[in-house]
Design a protein around this nucleic acid. Structure first.
Lengths: 332, 332
DNA sequence: TGGTTTTATGAGAAAGGTTACTATAAATGA
DNA sequence: TCATTTATAGTAACCTTTCTCATAAAACCA
């Protein structure tokens, strides 16, 4: 049972395949109603599904975009991915998923793969100093959008980001206003620009009030497990601290767990602040106070921006900055 | 700056494109070392990336698989998707992501899309009575594997499932052993076969001890929000209940939250049991007692099974049943 | 040594399904 | 009747793979 092609339909309808193709592509202002309908009927009868691989080869467009991200299992990324996929689907594109585990090597391999598949564009959430991947994409003239993760030295790229610095400043100010003084900051991997930005927000604010101390700063890896481990270290090493600002929600979850297990009262004894506002942060108990990124909007915007670039729209805004905002819940 | 093709390389190397193609496909036992190396060098120099669309058209293989699931934002699915993607990548395939929100209409559209893209196979996590989609896939001879969600009347399909019935039985027995008697059961959408199976496990076990009561059974939709809502109803409507068995973890999270807010002590006053064992269930506080599905293994198996089918392997096991197991934590 | 058979190497062309450009025939209009 | 429009056909191109066939060199034999 061979697959039905445009040729079969042409033969059955007694017309050329050009005509059939035109009908399917709405370039049919010159086709008689009669012919058009005959073709459409035959197509439906045979359950014709166009071969978009062949179409892609001819048009050099695949109507697919790639999305490269560290780990779909991380709620922050799955929410972004969801937004991207929704928007892509709406605009007639589909999405190829690539998990990199923050490995630049994997990123590069995926980039090559995507290029070879004639992907129309890439949404890239970098896992590190991903310059080689970016260069590869650029050299092949593939439209791309960076999301969430800035890449140092590639400021001229299209991107959708969050004002990390301002978000953290707001968070720290809030903790201070609650009379917290020894605020621990759990940073993300420091080879990520977003980590540096978030940390800077913390440092500057603490400095401003003369409260900054090197020993209050910890680093972890944005994972649940990492949050647990670092929190255990904090408990062991620090005598007095009255708040922990985790630079993402996921680490905060791990941390809260360890703290509760160790008998710390939240928020009475110690306040917890997260960053991201992933969906579950309002479902755990106690609910997490956090700096909310508009995750869905960011993903959606990234996708529509990418498709604008693909379509060669004019006057595109190159970079979008979203403003995060403090959401006060029960951990502070 | 046109894209480099096999032709360019052939011309530069002074050979035919056949030769170049053979070199890249390791069908080169008949090519002299000299020629091979010349070709490889030129390719590297020009940063040649093969056009796999053209290759797909010629070979009728795309080395892509589609994964159709309700919502990537749901941790259960993102964990499965992650497993699938890992395995696919390992075997040289990539993955097209499709979120259906349990809408059969969306499923069908995606199926058509995937077929038109010459996808090599589909992993299908059904959102309902998805017979039309399945029929479409079958009629087009696309290899596919059902995961997690059984489809009534399609028992002969390839599939990777969990012994839902047995899992729930084990869970209920455990609750009973803890002297719980009024065990509420929160079922999933009843148009899903897995819901029916899980419910049956509950019903049979409760019946066995003469404890089954219609009013202890509730239905929700497997979402966090749904879990909250149904739990509020339970609190309002039932006077005495000493345990709630949620038929997935996500609903349990929503439920725990509502219960805690309403002053119920967990597990002292009421025990909570979930189903799935998604990653966060061990990170919330209190940690969730649940019936664990081997989620990663199931995804991995589904993918390798699919690729076996694609490769026409012989003697393939058609259906895999994974045995869930009780994991006792702090909510019971 | 000369001629024939193998073997190694690679050329050429078709096929895959579609689009896009050009050409042509028929119908229409002035 | 000629020019224009309308409707459709023909064909090249997209880039690979794959099959068949050709050629030159090497090996063989007497």
């Amino acid at each position: 049972m061979r697959k039905v092609t445009i040729n079969d339909i042409a033969k059955m309808a007694g017309v050329s395949k050009t005509t059939v193709s035109m009908v399917f592509n709405n370039k049919d202002e010159n086709i008689s109603r009669e012919t058009r309908e005959k073709i459409l009927n035959i197509a439906k009868e045979l359950n014709y599904i166009p071969n978009s691989i062949a179409r892609s080869l001819a048009t050099k467009k695949s109507y697919s975009i790639g999305i490269i991200l560290p780990d779909i299992t991380n709620p922050f990324f799955s929410e972004i991915a969801r937004a991207i996929e929704d928007e892509a689907n709406k605009l007639g594109y589909n999405v190829v998923l690539c998990n990199t585990d923050n490995k630049v090597k994997k990123e590069e391999e995926y980039v090559k793969l995507l290029i070879s598949k004639l992907i129309d564009g890439i949404i890239f959430i970098a896992g590190g100093e991903s310059k080689r991947s970016i260069d590869l994409i650029k050299n092949n003239n593939i439209p791309f959008v960076l999301v969430d993760r800035y890449i140092d030295g590639y400021e001229e790229c299209y991107g959708v980001f969050c004002k990390n610095y301002d978000g953290v400043v707001e968070g720290v100010e809030y903790l201070l206003s609650k009379n917290k003084r020894n605020i621990v900051f759990v940073n993300g991997p420091k080879d990520l620009e977003i980590s540096r930005q978030r940390f800077q927000g913390y440092k500057d604010t603490m400095m401003k009030y003369g409260l900054f101390k090197e020993k209050l700063v910890y680093e972890s890896d944005f994972t649940l497990e990492g949050g647990k481990i670092v929190t255990q270290r904090i408990i062991n090493e620090l005598k007095d601290f009255d708040a922990i600002f985790y630079s993402n929600d996921v680490m905060a979850f791990g941390g809260i767990k360890v703290l509760l297990r160790n008998g710390f009262k939240i928020p009475e004894k110690i306040s917890i602040m997260g960053f991201d506002n992933i969906q579950i942060s309002q479902f755990i108990e106690p609910e997490l106070t956090t700096i909310a990124q508009p995750i869905y909007d960011m993903g959606k915007r990234a996708c529509s921006l990418l498709i604008d670039i693909i379509n060669g729209e004019e006057n595109i805004e190159k970079v979008y900055y979203f403003m995060p905002k403090l959401i006060i819940r029960s951990t502070t």
